[in-house]
């Protein structure tokens, strides 16, 4: 049963592999960015699920007197900043893609390589 107790890692691995597969197989650069985003999301999910404590609640200290179990706040902090950084880096990547499209007229990796080889 210990095997089933780690199902959160299974989800994370599956998502990560879907992202990796998209990045490798798809020639379209925008599709690669989406694949990278899925890959990133899987890492976020991994961190957050590591911080989860059974029967816990969100790490905002309550004042109704009772003792509560709180989830680990540290992964939340790391992922919170990571999400905002992720959107800025994908915006940068998209900007590069727009410039590539302007120079080569295509977003397919193979066609870009061909255009590179041609004089």
């Amino acid at each position: 049963m210990a095997f089933l107790g780690t199902y959160n890692y299974w989800i994370f691995i599956t998502l990560m592999m879907i992202g990796l597969y998209i990045v490798i197989v798809r020639g379209n650069l925008v599709k690669k960015i989406i694949g990278l985003n899925i890959f990133q999301s899987s890492v976020f999910l991994f961190f957050i699920s590591v911080g989860k404590v059974s029967d816990g609640t969100a790490p905002i200290i309550l004042h109704d007197g009772g003792e509560a179990i709180y989830s680990n706040p540290l992964p939340h902090v790391l992922i919170l900043t990571a999400i905002v950084v992720a959107v800025s880096t994908s915006a940068l990547a998209l900007a590069l893609i727009v410039r590539i499209h302007e120079s080569y007229g295509t977003l397919q990796e193979e066609l870009i390589h061909e255009a590179e080889r041609a004089p």
Binding site: A58, I60, L80, T81, I83, V84, V87
Partner: peptide, 12 residues
């Protein structure tokens, strides 16, 4: 400071 939120979310 007392609920979910903060600079990153507010900025977005």
């Amino acid at each position: 400071e007392s609920g979910p939120g903060g600079g990153f979310q507010a900025g977005v």
